[in-house]
C-alpha cells in the first residue's frame, strides 16, 4: 500500500516535471535560438572578420587590438561615459525630488503626477523631434527662455561642446518614469517611522536624512542599476537628432550608434560584435561594482516592512 502511494507520487512528480518543461518550452526554445545561441555566435564573431558575404575569417584578438587605435571608437566610449556620468545622477536626484513633491497631500496631486509622468511614455522618435525644435538655436524655446534671463543660448546640436549637454537635458524630460517608482517606494515607508521621528522632535530635513533616504535606498539601488544599463544603450534620441551621424564632428557618437554604423553601414560584423561585447562587459562591470558597494549604503530593513 505504502509502496503504491510512493510510486504514484513519484509518477505524479515525474509527470509534473514534464508538464513544467512543457510550459517552459517556448522560453527554452527562444533562449536557445534568440538569446543563448546568438550570444555564443557573437562572442565567436568578435574574434572574426566578417562582411556578411564571404565566410567569417578568424583573426584572434585583431578586433580588440584595433579598438585601441580607433579614435572613433575611443571617442564613442568617451561620449557614452560622459552621457552616463551626467544623466544618471542628475536623473536620479531629479526624479527623487519630483517624487517627494508628488508625495504631498494636495488636491491636484494626481493631475501633477500625470503631467510629470507623461513625457516618459512618449519617449522615442517623436519626442526627439520635439526637442530638435526646442533646441533650435535661433527660434527654439530653450534659447528664448535663456534670452529672458539675459543669457545668449548656445547652438546646442550644432555645437560640438553643447551637443552632449543638449541630449542630457533632453533625457531629463523623461524623469517621470523613475519618479513613479520612487513614489511607490515613498508610499511604502511605514508611517510609524515618521511618528517616531516626530516624537524625537525631528524636523523636515532630519526626517528626510534619517528616515526617508535610508528607507528609499533599495529603490535607488534598483533604479541606479537600471538607469546605468539604459544610459549605456542610448541610441534613438541621438540617431534622430543627428540623422544617424552622431554629429557634429562625432561629438554625440555613442557606442550603440557606432556599433550600428560598423554593422549596418560598413558591414564590419566582426568588429561590431567585438564592440558590443566590450559594451556588455562595461555594463557587467558597472553592475557588479554597484552590487559590491551596495552593502555600504543600501539599507535593507526586512523587519520593518509590513
Amino acid at each position: 500500500m505504502e509502496k503504491a502511494i510512493k510510486r504514484s507520487k513519484l509518477k505524479m512528480s515525474t509527470q509534473d516535471a514534464i508538464w513544467g518543461y512543457v510550459f517552459l518550452s517556448p522560453w527554452i526554445l527562444g533562449m536557445i535560438f534568440f538569446t543563448g545561441g546568438p550570444i555564443i555566435a557573437s562572442l565567436i564573431l568578435s574574434f572574426c572578420d566578417w562582411d556578411l558575404i564571404t565566410p567569417p575569417k578568424i583573426i584572434g584578438f585583431g578586433n580588440f587590438i584595433k579598438m585601441f587605435s580607433d579614435s572613433r571608437f575611443l571617442n564613442s566610449m568617451f561620449n557614452t561615459f560622459y552621457y552616463t556620468v551626467f544623466s544618471v545622477p542628475i536623473g536620479i536626484i531629479g526624479s527623487i525630488m519630483v517624487a517627494l513633491l508628488m508625495n504631498q497631500k494636495w488636491k491636484t496631486v494626481r493631475l501633477l503626477r500625470t503631467i510629470y509622468y507623461l513625457p516618459s511614455v512618449t519617449a522615442g522618435v517623436a519626442s526627439a523631434i520635439i526637442w530638435m525644435w526646442l533646441l533650435n538655436p535661433d527660434f527654439g524655446l530653450i534659447n528664448y527662455g535663456l534670452s529672458l534671463l539675459g543669457v545668449t543660448g548656445p547652438k546646442w546640436m550644432a555645437d560640438e561642446v553643447w551637443a552632449k549637454p543638449a541630449i542630457i537635458i533632453m533625457s531629463l524630460w523623461g524623469v517621470g518614469g523613475n519618479m513613479i517608482i520612487y513614489l511607490a517606494g515613498l508610499q511604502g515607508i511605514p508611517r510609524q517611522l515618521y511618528e517616531a521621528a516626530d516624537i524625537d522632535g525631528a524636523g523636515m530635513v532630519d526626517k528626510f536624512r534619517y528616515v526617508t533616504l535610508p528607507m528609499l535606498t533599495p529603490v535607488i539601488f534598483f533604479n541606479l542599476i537600471m538607469s546605468v544599463v539604459a544610459s549605456f544603450q542610448i541610441f534613438t534620441q541621438v540617431y534622430v537628432l543627428t540623422g544617424g551621424q552622431g554629429g557634429p564632428a562625432d561629438s554625440t557618437l555613442v557606442m550603440v550608434l557606432y556599433i550600428y554604423q560598423q554593422a549596418f553601414k560598413f558591414h564590419n560584423m566582426g568588429y561590431a560584435s567585438a564592440i558590443a561585447w566590450i559594451l556588455f562587459i562595461i555594463i557587467l562591470i558597472f553592475t557588479l561594482l554597484q552590487f559590491k558597494i551596495a552593502g555600504g549604503w543600501v539599507h535593507y530593513e526586512g523587519e520593518l516592512k509590513k
Binding site: 534568440f34 557573437s42 564573431l45 544599463v229 560584435s273 558590443a276 561585447w277 559594451l279 555594463i283
Partner: peptide, 11 residues
C-alpha cells in the same frame, strides 16, 4: 542584463 546589441548581429 544582456544589452540587445550583443545578440543583434547574429539575430
Amino acid at each position: 542584463m544582456i544589452p540587445a546589441q550583443v545578440t543583434m548581429i547574429p539575430n
